[in-house]
Amino acid sequence: MATSTLPERAPAPAPALPLQQRHVGDRVFRLLLTLAAVAVPVLLAFLVLELWLGSRAAIERFGFDFVTSSTWDPVAERFGALPLVVGTLVSSFLALLIAVPLSLGVAIFLTEFAPGWLRQPVAFLIELLAAIPSVVYGLWGIFVLVPFLLRWVFPVLQDWLGFLPFFQGTIYGPSMFSASVILAIMVMPYVMSVSREVLLAVPPSQREAALALGATRWEAVMTAVVPYARSGIVGAVILGLGRALGETMAVTMLIGNRHDISASLFAPGYTMAAAIANEFAEAVADIHLAALSYVALLLFLVTVVVNALARLLIWRVARGVEGGRGA
């Protein structure tokens, strides 16, 4: 150190800091954050309580039969939600079946194969899909997607796969299949962007290790990159599933809203969310309202159960490293 920069005299000693001082701001801040953190679970508890109170009349009258019965007759005041539960699960499952391979393919392409200048713009555009209101998707579905599917896709599917019960029978425009396709498009940006983040987070050394063994780009992706990211990818799929289960508007506009279980995917169906949205405003009888609340409670339960299963899956996958395959 150059001595010339030192002051000529030592500065006067500062007065000793008082040891006792209260930081009121800190306490207030802490209190506010605690309140915010507590508010969320409390809200959730109130939501469940409210759903349960609202549906109590229906629960007492129909009990568990509500879930296994298919009749939905507001006039006769007989309600069974099985087609709604089935419709929700089938449309979400089918949507993921379409969306997950596509999203993963895009994510892998964008992180591993696309030229640098293409990566950001494409990722941005796909993420922009998530910003489109679902009613717009619904309208687009009615005017563009459904006519397209009717003209080009459904007949071909029936020709090729008609031997399967899923593709038999009369072809309707608004149908389980149409709703699943629109759901797939809506779910894709979520699955894609989360998978992309996860793939980007894979250390480059993993790729290099595989490439140094003489792997092709594709083999490096499949042996090193995707396995490394797999629990994150499962997480991305679950996020998409959550979206698909609860999506209401676009599905209501495209699924046909028929309270029926049909093996054919070309036939109209119904989902829990769509039924609530369609009927709540028009329900006058108390028992009808209670039945719709019961449906809402079921939807909540289905979402919780599916998410719990999915978390279990992530957990299993994450620690499933032990005892890998092997010859």
Partner: peptide
Amino acid sequence: TPFPTMSIYDNVAAG
């Protein structure tokens, strides 16, 4: 840089 999702055996066999 072992492949973390693979067993010891599979790591050696990867190449």
